[in-house]
Computed example of a mutant assay.
Amino acid sequence: MKLEGTIPLFPLHELIEMVVYSSVTGTLNVYGPGAPGTLYFRDGVLYHAERGSAEGMTALSELFEVTEAHFTFVSDVTTEAESLWGTLHEHLHTAQRLAARWRKLRAYIPHMDLIPLLLGSHEQLVHRVSPKHHTIFQALDQQSDLRQLAQKLGWAEIDVGEAIVQLCVDGLIELRPTRQTTAQVESPTDDQKSPRTGGLFDRIRSRTPPRPAPPPPAAAATTAPQSTPEEPASEPKEAESPDDLILKLLRG
């Protein structure tokens, strides 16, 4: 079973909650700018996330930064990898908080494959570094990218990102892409250029049967026998809501 739609019409956190509530197994795939992401569920439990080289909470928070994307849910797909533990509330709260912090940095750090370079000699710049950034300044080697720098320091990537942006604002460093990153840049695919149309909600609306129109009074008078008492017309059933239909599709 496979279903699809767009993130602007169905926010990611609501979609995740819907999958968890449905207690299904499968993958929720998100396609937007940059690398696609995949969330894995087993019996409604979110246990793994991946996007490009990122996994776990890093990948999940990156997906919450995406505002224009489309998604597909494919049932019965699993993986042996596991990178998320804890409750759904913890996952969503942490991922959304990290996404909000990253949005403030993305003008400087679109990705972690960037190398911080000093704008001068170490001796010229060290006296301009604030005490709280001294540790990361001393770790700059003109070769390590931001992800490697985070691993070397044992810091979270978001903490490295915030410190690096401040050093950029202070005019102490600049960020340049690695050669590997430059060589791997590709033009966006058709799926990434624009969200798909005719997604989940369009199909749901098309499957919802219209309410039958009552017959005109004149036609009813000519077709009904005079001797038979007219039976009261039964009220049409109310159409199911999109949420109910999504749950039915998820549950198969």
Rank of each mutant, 00 (worst) to 15 (best):
H91D: 04
R176D: 12
Q142N: 12
D170V: 12
P11Y: 11
D190N: 12
S227M: 10
T87S: 15
K237H: 15
V45E: 13
Q226S: 14
S75I: 11
A213V: 09
V30L: 05
P217K: 05
G171T: 08
R251G: 06
L245F: 05
L46S: 03
E62I: 02
A139V: 05
P214Q: 13
V77K: 06
H93T: 14
I204H: 00
A35Y: 09
I16F: 02
A213N: 06
I173L: 12
A107G: 11
I246P: 05
I115Q: 02
A139M: 05
N29V: 09
G161W: 00
T228F: 07
T228A: 02
P236D: 11
R147G: 04
D190M: 12
I173T: 02
E157I: 04
G34A: 02
S75T: 12
I16M: 10
A99D: 14
Y31C: 03
E14Y: 15
E50K: 14
G154I: 03
D145H: 08
E80P: 07
P11K: 03
A150L: 03
E90I: 02
A163D: 08
P110E: 01
K237A: 15
L119H: 11
A49H: 06
Q184V: 03
P116I: 07
S121R: 12
Q226W: 15
S22Y: 13
A233V: 07
G252A: 06
E14P: 01
